[in-house]
Design a protein around this nucleic acid. Structure first.
Length: 261
DNA sequence: ATGGCAATGTTTCATTGA
């Protein structure tokens, strides 16, 4: 199973790039964030035409998440849940589905705007509620992937001094990321030796991508028992080099099936 | 200290993102 996550910053704008990317990278599962589409606008037909089923939870303008499942390998999504049952929320930031023997949870964590703001407080409450939900037992091993809006360590930050204590890097956010890990997950990316200065998001401004002035805030966490089956985890920078890119790059993990452990 | 850039709807600006 190959699973990927990508914050596309508008699926309406990025649909051609998503279709191109899936042709070049026919992953079994693709989790999308910031689709920014009403459900009735979701390009289900275009995605079905290249062999993927979609489940999605959207709203106008902001947020919006989806899981794309390759029909011939991942099978149909089962037990689809939109949102966190423990946290009523108008924002469409969570969708989960059972696929290929895994419980796949696609998450778009709040940005938090600025430490101390109302949106920051909401981010922390949202993360606490996610941890409460994921603490409940699951019949299938869980993969939690998406845009976490948290750079877990200083090595995930291009300029740790400049970002120290700022939103995405604050102690409280990192503690909550660690709390998620503490539920029994591992960060698939850190199971492998990685190039230094590996990031998944670069600001559109100030030529940040060209300078590799980025952050690693998009993650794939796998339930601990899956860790021995993870064969690779990489960030694909290619889409970020294109015209009119998303500001985020896809992250991909390959998980061997249970028999191949 | 501030804005830089991109996408959206409330569109010729304001809001949000990160």
């Amino acid at each position: 199973m190959k699973l990927a996550t990508w914050n596309v910053n508008s699926l309406k704008v990025r649909l051609p790039q998503v279709l191109d990317w899936l042709h070049a990278n026919p992953v079994d599962v693709l989790a999308l964030q910031e689709t920014k589409l009403r459900d009735e606008q979701f390009p289900h037909a275009e995605i079905a035409a290249i062999g993927y089923e979609s489940v999605f939870a959207g709203q106008p303008t902001y947020n919006g998440v989806a899981i794309l499942a390759r029909r011939d390998t991942a099978g149909p999504p089962a037990n689809v849940v939109a949102g966190n049952p423990l946290f009523p929320d108008d924002h469409k930031r969570l969708i989960s589905a059972d696929l290929g023997g895994l419980r796949v949870v696609c998450a778009y964590f709040p940005n938090g705007q600025a430490v101390g703001s109302d949106k920051y407080a909401y981010k922390l409450r949202w993360m606490d509620a996610l941890a409460d939900w994921l603490a409940q037992p699951s019949p299938l091993p869980v993969v939690l992937l998406g845009d976490f809006n948290v750079a877990p360590e200083d090595r995930d930050v291009h300029d740790p001094q400049a970002w120290a204590g700022q939103v995405l890097c604050s102690v409280a956010e990192r503690e909550r990321f660690a709390k998620l890990i503490g539920l029994g997950f591992v960060d698939a990316f850190r199971l492998f030796e990685q190039p230094p200065r590996s990031f998944s998001w670069w600001d559109y401004r100030q030529l940040a991508f060209r300078r590799n002035a980025g952050l690693r805030i998009d993650h794939i966490l796998v339930a601990h028992p899956l860790a021995p089956r993870v064969r690779a985890c990489t960030i694909d920078r290619e889409p970020r080099k294109r015209e009119q890119p998303s500001d985020h790059a896809p992250v991909i993990a390959e998980i061997a099936s249970a028999g191949e452990a």
